[in-house]
């Protein structure tokens, strides 16, 4: 993209050009409304996709932009889910306040752990994120008086959204709710990556040593983006808890951390839409193959991972971008 800037473009125009809304983007967001009319029986699935996409978006901020590999991102998703679930059980079932509470708790824990995260890189970082994820999973398992342990949290009851829209069986409200939250969070993330801070994150990803050499406080940047990412992941978790009215230990599992990584890598990390695209493909495929044993499902996921790493290093969106570049180059 950057290489193709024509002569006579001022620096300011160049930067504006990079942040401009493209037609595909607008078309995409309009298309997210289609499930309401085209596949009204699949709105629950659509809602799950939106939630997963939001979770993947949160991971993209730290992994795709700042280059922080996490094998335990489900920790924040799960925190959000349990917070929303417990809130409805012990305080009230009003969804929006539940969402805010989940965001706050996930953000607080994210902020606290960000001090650890920011100190490490490479292998140690991978192990720490893995360890923290496992730790939280195990803690929720042990604290069965609060979380219900392996049986899941019982008695989650969510009030109608805005006091008017009940969470129906078809998932109309669920999808509308998830989609709106996804779109809002997407706007935040899009703004963030096109800000000076977003540029700094890409700098950390590209070369952390050089970042220090231009005077950048890498650790404080990492802490900030990690906290923001935790908030968004927590919101995604809360959406899942509220729209399905269940919370099980699975929200904190290593599989969920691995899944979201797969989804993001499949779609293309560091591309904003990568997580969304990955979520659509992954969730639809999973739904189509829901007949097969989940054990075997992971065989194909594993194969997919190997294939993506070996053949499609920048995910589907990266592959598409390269294809488009070549095509345009050929035309010129």
């Amino acid at each position: 993209m950057a290489g193709a800037a024509p002569e006579g473009v001022t620096p300011h125009q160049y930067l504006e050009n990079q942040t401009r809304w493209r037609r595909v983007e607008i078309a995409f967001w309009l298309a997210t409304l289609l499930p309401f009319v085209v596949t009204p029986t699949y709105l629950s699935l659509a809602s799950q996709i939106a939630i997963t996409a939001l979770f993947a978006l949160s991971l993209d901020l730290i992994l795709g932009y700042a280059g922080i590999v996490s094998l335990g991102h489900a920790a924040f998703f799960g925190l959000g889910a349990y917070t929303a679930g417990l809130m409805s059980k012990f305080v009230w079932g009003e969804p929006l306040t539940g969402l805010v509470a989940a965001a706050a708790i996930a953000g607080l824990v994210g902020f606290a752990t960000s001090f650890i995260i920011a100190r490490f890189r490479h292998l140690a970082l991978i192990m720490i994120t893995l360890g923290l994820g496992l730790l939280l999973h195990e803690a929720a398992n042990s604290a069965s008086w609060l979380t219900g342990g392996a049986d899941g949290l019982q008695g989650v009851d969510i009030w109608p959204l805005l006091g008017a829209f009940k969470f129906d069986l078809y998932g109309r409200t669920a999808y509308a709710y998830s989609l709106v939250v996804l779109a809002l969070m997407f706007l935040v993330a899009r703004r963030l990556i096109h800000s000076p801070f977003g540029l700094a994150l890409r700098g950390i990803r590209e070369n952390a040593v050089r970042m220090s050499a231009i005077g950048a406080p890498n650790r404080s940047h990492v802490r900030k983006v990690y906290t923001i990412s935790a908030v968004i992941a927590g919101i995604a978790g809360a959406l899942l808890a509220q729209t399905t009215e269940t919370v099980s230990l699975e929200v904190l599992s290593f599989e969920r951390s691995a899944d979201v990584l797969v989804i993001l890598i499949l779609g293309g990390a560091g591309r904003l839409y990568g997580g969304i695209l990955g979520a659509i493909i992954y969730m639809v495929a999973r739904d189509q193959f829901s007949g097969i044993n989940p054990q075997f499902w992971y065989f194909w996921i594993g194969l997919l991972l190997v294939a993506v790493v070996m053949l499609l290093p920048n995910g589907i969106l990266g592959g598409l971008a390269r294809f488009a570049e070549r095509w345009q180059g050929g035309r010129r």
Binding site: L15, T19, S195, A200, G203, E206, I214, G215, K224
Partner: peptide
């Protein structure tokens, strides 16, 4: 990063607004 982005990043860091995430770079 493009050359301009890289140097702009260094300028932003020096001027102290590289942590601003709610405003666009342009």
């Amino acid at each position: 990063l493009s050359a301009l982005e890289a140097v702009t990043l260094a300028v932003c860091e020096r001027r102290g607004f590289a942590g601003v995430w709610w405003r666009g770079l342009p």
